[in-house]
Amino acid sequence: MKRLGLIAIMVFGGLLFSISFELPDLGDARSPASTHVSPYYIEQAIHDTSVPNVVTAILADYRGYDTLFETAVIFSAGLACFFLLRITDRKAPKARFYRHLATGLTLRVEKGGRLPEDTKEFERIDSAWVPSDVIINMTCRLVVPFIQLFALYVIAHGHHSPGGGFQGGVIFGAAIILYAISNNLRRTLRRTSERTSALLGSGGVIIYLGTGLLCILLGAGFLNYSSLSLVPGLDPVSARSYGILIVEIGVGIAVTAVMVWIYYNLASAGKLDEGL
């Protein structure tokens, strides 16, 4: 069976490799894509949408449907992780571990034992806890706000530079995940709960869909942002630019929340109890 697979891979790999010589060269001006499709967008995007970054204009305006369903795919990935992994029965775990902060002693509290939850002297720790490193804690605490700021910059500046809602959302989610790794999962859950991430994930998709429906209500096609120019002080071109911005923010919120949501379910094996 293994040999058969190897032969199949060799044959189809060789076929792909031999066909790749027939592909047009990188940046060939006479290739079909460069003669029919690209010139329109490269020349007209700035006049149509006043967005200098052509990629953003294509992704969020000309091909808005694609990005809408991409966001929906991301959201369904988060939903699938939730349904596959999340364990909802609220049985207490077998044993919990507590650390006395002053002495560093570890308590193991069996099921049914009295839990020192509300005292300031004990801190609950994961069963796979290792003594936390001061360098890691401090570095992450310093770096996380800057990562979040950079993520907001990437979302807001997607019109002018590479980036946009998707990348910015992933970076923002990565900042929260970094916080969860360097501290612990329960502290992160107190700040951004599972409910928050699920609601924000669907909220981002709804922002995108709502923008499209608003365009219909204002008298143009689905996701045709030029109809937003009915808002006073906007001409059709800058209305398309603002429409792209709203949509990018929606994508950013959805992607951030879903990344965090997937991480919660994966790192705690669905219990949302003890993290990585």
Partner: peptide
Amino acid sequence: DVSFTEASVGAGV
């Protein structure tokens, strides 16, 4: 843009 996505999604998250 693709490279940015690859760096954040593929290599990061």
